[in-house]
């Protein structure tokens, strides 16, 4: 079966309900794949740049302050979260990010996002239809 990023978005949405966006970017901020829900309009390249900067800063903080390996960053807002995790795609460092719907379950968001990040490390996605 050919898996596309759209499939992954739909699958994630069925578990977490009403997610706004799922985005995969290279570590230097170039969008590889991006899916948005219909009602949510924004520039996915902006999200890629922002998530790559924030992840790089989070990694530096983890290394310099706690001397630990970075795992994830979460930005909480009054309506939802932006969750960012590091992954690999086709052997290159990437960042997978998710913008949740209203009132997200943080534990579930983290669990499924890590699971997807893990899957992407060995996956080859087909081009979106």
């Amino acid at each position: 079966m050919n898996i596309t990023f759209k499939h992954l978005f739909k699958n994630m949405d069925s578990k977490l309900h009403n997610i706004k966006a799922l985005n995969l970017t290279s570590a230097d901020g170039f969008t590889l794949f991006s899916e948005l829900c219909n009602e949510f309009k924004f520039d996915s390249n902006k999200l890629s740049a922002v998530t790559s900067s924030i992840t790089a800063l989070s990694q530096a903080a983890a290394k310099q302050i706690i001397k630990s390996k970075f795992q994830s960053t979460c930005i909480e807002t009054d309506t939802g979260v932006i969750y960012m995790v590091q992954t690999l795609y086709q052997g290159k460092k990437c960042i997978l990010s998710l913008i949740s719907g209203d009132d997200p379950n943080l534990g579930q968001t983290r669990y499924y996002l890590f699971k997807l990040a893990n899957y992407l490390e060995t996956a080859t996605l087909s081009a979106d239809e």
Binding site: D28, F30, Q59
Partner: peptide, 17 residues
């Protein structure tokens, strides 16, 4: 906060943070 550049920018690493 340098990361590997995926496009040709004349150098291997680039600052993103």
């Amino acid at each position: 906060t340098d990361v590997e550049a995926t496009e040709n920018i004349g150098k291997k690493m680039t600052t993103v943070g």
